[in-house]
């Protein structure tokens, strides 16, 4: 029971923010929710081990990002998206509310992930590097490149 309650608290602490980040990364709220759900389910199955990690959310976030990548690559998933009914009540449709998400999708994935983790989740460069298995220098590079690519896109959007 203790483990279960620990997991519940872990879920409560991180689920929403992870869904938000994955939504920003993928541009698809439902795919993000699915990916995060899968990641939490995997964590639940291995909670005895995962809970002993220094930072379990790093593991869950990595699994969720990898899972989202798998889902995006899946043609089957794309077909399901086309037939998808209304989005889950708990998840907003990011495209309808955000001007940023469509622009983020035009960035390379590493730039997009680095920017979301850094600006949205508030991770440090070191933490982003650890999360993405990159050097800190590489993370700084991707952040710089992401900003440089995003600026003109934002300006164009404002001018329209």
């Amino acid at each position: 029971m203790r483990k279960s309650s620990d997991f519940d608290q872990f879920f409560m602490d991180h689920h929403a923010s992870l869904v938000r980040s994955l939504t920003a990364i993928t541009g698809d709220a439902e795919l993000a929710a699915d990916s995060v759900q899968d990641a939490f389910q995997r964590a639940y199955l291995r909670w005895g081990r995962i809970s002993r990690y220094d930072n379990p959310v790093t593991w869950v976030r990595r699994v969720a990002i990898n899972r989202s990548r798998d889902l995006i690559r899946s043609d089957q998933r794309r077909r399901r998206n086309e037939d998808r009914a209304a989005p889950d009540e708990a998840v907003t449709d990011p495209e309808s509310e955000s001007h940023l998400i469509p622009l983020l999708r035009r960035l390379p994935e590493r730039q997009r992930v680095a920017m979301v983790l850094y600006y949205l989740e508030g991770l440090s460069v070191e933490q982003v590097a650890d999360q993405m298995s990159l050097s800190q220098g590489a993370v700084k590079y991707h952040l710089h490149e992401g900003r440089e690519r995003l600026r003109p896109l934002l300006e164009n959007q404002e001018n329209q």
């Binding site: 929403a16 923010s17 869904v19 998840v91 998400i101 600006y119």
Partner: peptide
């Protein structure tokens, strides 16, 4: 920008 533009997390 990110805080403003990315939908808020669920309650």
């Amino acid at each position: 920008l990110f805080e403003r533009e990315i939908p808020r997390p669920a309650s």
